[in-house]
């Protein structure tokens, strides 16, 4: 939700971050799959930055690389002004930055009790002195996410999807993080349950002063929860702007198409909406085209788009776009 109680101080700065996976293409041959290719942005303390883009464009990989769950191929992540470099930096960072996963059905071990799932990060990071302290901490975390103490001894598989997602969130809060990457945390939930979990993210942010990178494919949900939204395409960031601005006045051709395609839950608007149809297949990140990655589908593409990569530039205050023709087409 757009609240303005965050400071200008970035908590996370991402600079020219790259994540290439080596894919074997035959005997002793391999090629880099550029899952994340040179992205730069920063997130302010207390802010929610939404991250959207089509399946396979690199959202999850970006989140995991920022958290150093994957070693970056290149580029750096700066936490509160300090670059994360050494193994010790990473270990400390892990107590400040955590992740909530998409699928509440498979991300929790069915043989563990809720108390043990939530307590595991406490054990790993030696975050208590006595058994009693551990227990209290777990119960406090459970109350943060609206679970009560009688749930502690039960197993995750006994819970509904929404409850499991609460367990996952409690676990990610265990180390007292101030930054959380939320990877599609409500996509697997029923509409009627999604709202409960979304509101909980909001409340936790207010109460604990958290900063979120919120990955999702439902644009209305992302706009609801985010202060700013970043759009990715084929491993690159193509636009970054205020959440309402980007929704009402997208500047990049891909963002325009994406937003025009959102199925709006309102029959009258749906009848009036004109969708920008995209033809052409989505290129594979193994064979990303030269020049602008979107040129194979872009209705505005020109010869120069095939030749050079448009830079990701600030075109208005706080508004970044990667397109050669931003000025002409808007």
């Amino acid at each position: 939700m757009s609240t303005n109680n965050h400071s200008e101080q970035p908590i996370i700065e991402v600079r020219h971050l790259k994540q290439y996976f080596n894919i074997s293409t035959g005997f002793f041959q391999s090629r880099p799959l550029k899952a994340v290719d040179d992205i730069s942005f920063s997130i302010r303390e207390g802010e929610t930055l939404g991250l959207v883009g089509e399946s396979g464009c690199g959202k999850t990989t970006a989140g995991r690389t920022i958290l150093h769950l994957y070693k970056p191929t290149d580029g750096e992540v700066i936490y509160r002004g300090k670059p994360i470099k050494t193994a010790k930096d990473i270990e400390q960072f892990r107590t400040k930055a955590t992740m909530v996963f998409q699928d509440p059905y498979s991300s929790l071990d069915p043989r563990m009790t809720v108390a043990d799932i939530i307590g595991e990060p406490l054990d790993v990071h030696h975050m208590y002195k006595t058994k009693e302290e551990r227990r209290e901490k777990i119960l406090e975390l459970m109350s943060h996410v609206g679970l009560n103490s009688e749930h502690a001894a039960r197993y995750a598989h006994e819970f509904s999807g929404g409850q499991r997602q609460r367990v996952g969130i409690a676990r990610s809060l265990a180390v007292n993080p101030d930054f959380i990457v939320c990877d599609e945390p409500v996509s697997a939930l029923d509409v009627s349950i999604q709202a409960q979990v979304i509101n909980m993210f909001d409340e936790l942010q207010d109460r604990l002063g958290l900063t979120y990178l919120f990955i999702a494919h439902d644009l209305l949900v992302v706009r609801h929860i985010s202060d700013r939204i970043a759009v990715m395409y084929l491993g690159r960031m193509v636009e970054l702007a205020d959440a309402n601005e980007i929704y009402d006045r997208p500047l990049h051709p891909y963002t325009k198409a994406l937003i025009s395609a959102v199925p709006v839950p309102d029959p009258k608007t749906a009848r009036e909406n004109k969708r920008i149809a995209l033809s052409g297949e989505i290129p594979s990140p193994l064979n990303a085209p030269a020049g602008c990655p979107f040129h194979t589908r872009c209705p505005y593409a020109q010869p120069k788009c095939k030749e050079s990569m448009p830079p990701f530039e600030e075109v208005e205050k706080g508004r970044y776009v990667a397109c050669h023709r931003t000025a002409e087409i808007n």
């Binding site: 709202a195 209305l220 609801h224 959440a243 309402n244 929704y247 709006v264 839950p265 309102d266």
Partner: peptide, 13 residues
Amino acid sequence: IPTVEGSGEKLEP
């Protein structure tokens, strides 16, 4: 569900 207007108000689950 969030509305098209995006009022920014709390969702009512």
